[in-house]
């Protein structure tokens, strides 16, 4: 597991039924591109978050494929429908097989 990898998500605590909300996500990850070389001239192997998904109550909001050109500490902002109260599930998939998750509940009110 890559060290120091921490997800953060920003979701409003509540919304009116049917509202559109803005979600922001950030994960602290180096996103080693595979382009860099170490002091001896050896290529530092690629090691990135390669996929990010967001689901709401089990239904998909976005599914993003990341390549090495996504900046360190990958950031995404997108909009989701909130038809009812529920839970947003966020998942990041690392090249090294690790999976990072975060969940945020949203109430209707």
């Amino acid at each position: 597991m890559a060290s120091g990898v921490k997800p953060r998500v920003k979701v409003p605590k509540k919304a009116a039924a049917g509202d559109v909300i803005t979600i922001k996500t950030l994960i602290s990850h180096k996103m080693e591109s595979g382009q860099r070389k170490d002091k001896e001239g050896n290529v530092i192997p690629r090691s990135i978050i390669n996929r990010f998904t967001c689901d709401f109550n089990g239904e998909n909001v976005v599914d993003i494929k990341l390549e090495p050109a996504i900046s360190t500490n990958p950031f995404f902002e997108f909009e989701a429908k909130v038809p009812e109260a529920g839970e947003f599930q966020f998942t990041w998939y690392d090249d090294d097989g690790s999976v990072y998750e975060a969940t945020k509940s949203i109430a209707i009110g």
Binding site: V20, I21, S33, Q35, D55, F56, E59, N60, V61, V62, D63, I64, K65, L66, E67, P68, A69, I70, S71, P74, F75, F76, E77, F78, E79, A80, K81
Partner: peptide, 28 residues
């Protein structure tokens, strides 16, 4: 990114719960 060593940056797929087909990110 047409001028990068490899051009692929990201591919966004929007699901049924996406309110808009908009997305922001930061790239190299």
């Amino acid at each position: 990114a047409t001028g990068n060593p490899t051009p692929s940056v990201a591919t966004f797929k929007f699901g049924s719960m996406a309110a808009t087909r908009n997305a922001s990110t930061r790239i190299r």
